[in-house]
Simulated assay, not measured.
Amino acid sequence: MTVSHSPVRRRTQADRSAVTRTKIIQAAVSLLQTQGYAATTIQRIAKTAEVSLGALQHHYPTKALIMATVLRHYAVKRAGLYRHAMSLKGRPEERVDAMLDAMWALVTDGPDFIATVEIELARRSDPELKAATEPVLARIDQFMTRWLSGSRKAPPDAHFVRLRQINSALLRGISVEIARGTSVSELKDSYMLWRNFTRQELLKITVDKP
């Protein structure tokens, strides 16, 4: 009896390039978390990713472009987590709870959030970084505000925008506290105090929404 085997698909150049880009971004995120922005040089990123400096610069000619890609990478991850969490819930209360729980998970699960904070702080004194990341951050902020508010076409509720700004500031502060060594369990107790308040405020908007 002859057993047929499906041919093994050979990796294309596009596949190899995608793997290299992923390794570079993962290395950058890890270094940003552990070493900070200034120490996250392209040489260190290449070494950590185990790719040549030439290969890194082929995909990302500058450090600023790597950082812009890190921000986009995190935004995609964040949107995916929110979408999954809220797709499993039906009532407004359940969707709000899912969104707030997802926010906490994003800050505490892995190095991505503190990496984005490092990038945002470094923009103050790095004109090249600011120029490369400004349009990325603007698109992310606009999309996330409209999408999370449920107002993808009409302008989002002004109260929701303010709540989201405050919540984003709180999450950045929590990520810095984690980096300083404050225990996650202690910080979660503090987050739950805020969560109860913001849940009530969000439901004032969401429940009354047609």
Rank of each mutant, 00 (worst) to 15 (best):
A138H: 11
M192C: 01
D141V: 04
P210K: 11
F113L: 05
R162K: 12
D101G: 13
V96E: 08
A158L: 10
A179P: 01
S6L: 15
D101M: 11
K47D: 14
G54N: 13
V176G: 00
L137V: 15
D109K: 10
T145Q: 10
R10D: 05
A79D: 12
Q33M: 03
I24R: 00
V3M: 10
A115H: 09
L88E: 14
Q142E: 13
R44M: 12
L170R: 10
A132P: 09
H5L: 15
S30M: 09
G36K: 08
V136R: 07
L65V: 04
Y82W: 11
R139D: 14
L203K: 07
W104N: 08
R9I: 15
V19L: 02
K77C: 02
H84Q: 10
R146P: 02
Y74N: 13
L65C: 01
T34M: 03
S175K: 07
L163M: 13
L193A: 11
T133K: 02
K153Q: 06
D157L: 01
A79H: 13
K209I: 02
T133R: 03
V70Q: 09
L100A: 09
V70L: 11
A131G: 01
L71T: 06
P127N: 06
V8F: 10
V136D: 08
F113V: 01
T12R: 03
E134A: 15
A122H: 07
L203V: 07
L100K: 05
F143V: 10
D126M: 05
S17T: 11
D126C: 05
K47S: 13
Q43R: 15
A39F: 05
S183A: 14
A138F: 06
G90S: 14
G181N: 06
A68S: 13
P61S: 08
M67V: 06
I178V: 13
Y82G: 02
D112R: 07
R139W: 04
K204T: 07
T206D: 03
M1A: 13
S52W: 02
V51K: 00
A122D: 04
I119T: 08
Q26F: 05
V29N: 05
T69C: 06
A122G: 06
L32Q: 08
W194F: 15
G110C: 09
L88G: 11
L88T: 09
R91H: 12
A75R: 06
V176I: 15
V117Y: 08
K188R: 15
N167C: 07
L203S: 06
T40V: 11
D112W: 10
K63H: 12
V3H: 07
K153L: 12
A154G: 00
R162C: 02
P135Q: 03
M86D: 02
